[in-house]
Design a protein around this nucleic acid. Sequence first.
DNA 1: TTGCTCCTCACGTCACGTGAGGTGGC
DNA 2: TTGCTCCTCACGTCACGTGAGGTGGC
Lengths: 283, 283
Amino acid sequence: MLKIGDFSKLGKVSIRMLRHYDQIGILKPAHIDYYTGYRGYSIDQLPRLNRIIFLKEIGFSLSEVMKFLDNHLSVDDMKSMLIKRQKDIENEIIMAQVSLKRVEQRLNSIQSEGESPKYDINIKKTESFAYACHRTIVPHMYQMDFYCFDMYDKIYKELNKINVTPIGPEITMYYNEEYTETNLDVEAGIIIPLSSMQKFMTQESILKTRLIAEEENVAFTVYSGPFDGLERAIIELLTWIEVNDYSINGTIREIHLSGPAHLNDKVVESAIIELQIPISKIK
Amino acid sequence: MLKIGDFSKLGKVSIRMLRHYDQIGILKPAHIDYYTGYRGYSIDQLPRLNRIIFLKEIGFSLSEVMKFLDNHLSVDDMKSMLIKRQKDIENEIIMAQVSLKRVEQRLNSIQSEGESPKYDINIKKTESFAYACHRTIVPHMYQMDFYCFDMYDKIYKELNKINVTPIGPEITMYYNEEYTETNLDVEAGIIIPLSSMQKFMTQESILKTRLIAEEENVAFTVYSGPFDGLERAIIELLTWIEVNDYSINGTIREIHLSGPAHLNDKVVESAIIELQIPISKIK
DNA sequence: TTGCTCCTCACGTCACGTGAGGTGGC
DNA sequence: TTGCTCCTCACGTCACGTGAGGTGGC
């Protein structure tokens, strides 16, 4: 019979761990002294301890380890648990590799800019939404201002007329496949309740309504500053997508988080804008 | 000013998380209503939230994230934190890959044996120890029994004579480079206190004493059963080492955990024996 | 008045590490 | 008697999830 200290040395585990395993019942000492409470382990409990350590090391929780050891478990059950673990580990590795890339990238941007980067680019999923919109071709970028004001003005007036209250911010969609400065295919829209969509049908509104599907993977960044700084942020985002082996999988969107972009006929001088681009991983 | 629910939707985090970030001070709401306690967030807090999420996702703890954000941090400090994280992730990936291999192997052994494997093979480090020993060449395996009895008998008698008490079990070392059945170069020894080593010098004992160095990586398994089943366990262990791209880096050892292997002139019929082989990774 | 949103505790999670305070065996 | 080992609580870890119990605004 071994005392807990000796047994812990044989098994290369802490005394505390053995006490813990006793407590949760995964490895009870072969004998406990009635008066002193001293735990006594027998050497033939060592294989069990080693099996516990092994299963723990490959990532099973102690309750899973218990299932494994209390052999109410068929061989097939063991197999499927191991296969699940295998897939989980494979996933963990992929996630870790992604993290690694993101760290490296952050390091690069610090290296080249000599300071912390201006844009944080993350990935998230987006929900679906309904919006009322107006689409047009803008001949040149520097006219964006005027055209957008015009479109949003129309939308707000129309919404007012048919008595629909927006439930979300302004969203500008860029339909051009490539980055360009001329002939921009732009749609301006405002999020409305799903339930209000039929109003547009029945009243033959000048506005279109569209249902935008949810997206699983959207690269995004939140920009804050004047509107003409937005271009740089878009370029950063596009570069990021390329560097990280993603491909563009939908329409570039600009969401005016800080409210309408135009007040009293002129563009607001400082805004908070979220840029979104749906993406998918290149195989 | 946004209510907590709206802000949590923009940031794709739970309300509870925002409350938590408020509590630990990493992201305090721009305004708190004095009477209701309602938290009010401003949209320009969104970039900070996104940066928190980003740093969290690449594996920093919230206290590390705080350090990052409370910019008492120089660019060099940021760099070194990122580099450390980079190394940590690289390590995590390697560890995960090792786990993966072990899972796959366990799956294989279930597949081929149709049941849970008999031997758990793990890796551990071992401490250094002193031992008194006797070495000899055993002509053929089936004589091991007799030769070992003889050696251990000599050792026990000698220890008794010079009044040294063993502090550890019997250890048998196999010096042959390759697995063989004839001319086994075997050393039998018993662990003794370091302090007793000089006794052997002064009294010119027939026993050698040796100091065995600690080993960083030792593949081991605990076998229990009759002595003649040991061979299979050794073969398993050797196979495992090969399959896992390790190379043997020291002497194979057999440790008699259940006590002396010979009692009253004959070998004990059931024993618990740890097999150890120091290893190193093949590059 | 009824939902919906917000609030503050406070327990639970997981596998132990780390004292505090005390006892048993040589 | 002095170390050394053992014992039992019980708090702390980390980043929230999940109620419980209650309030404010439309």
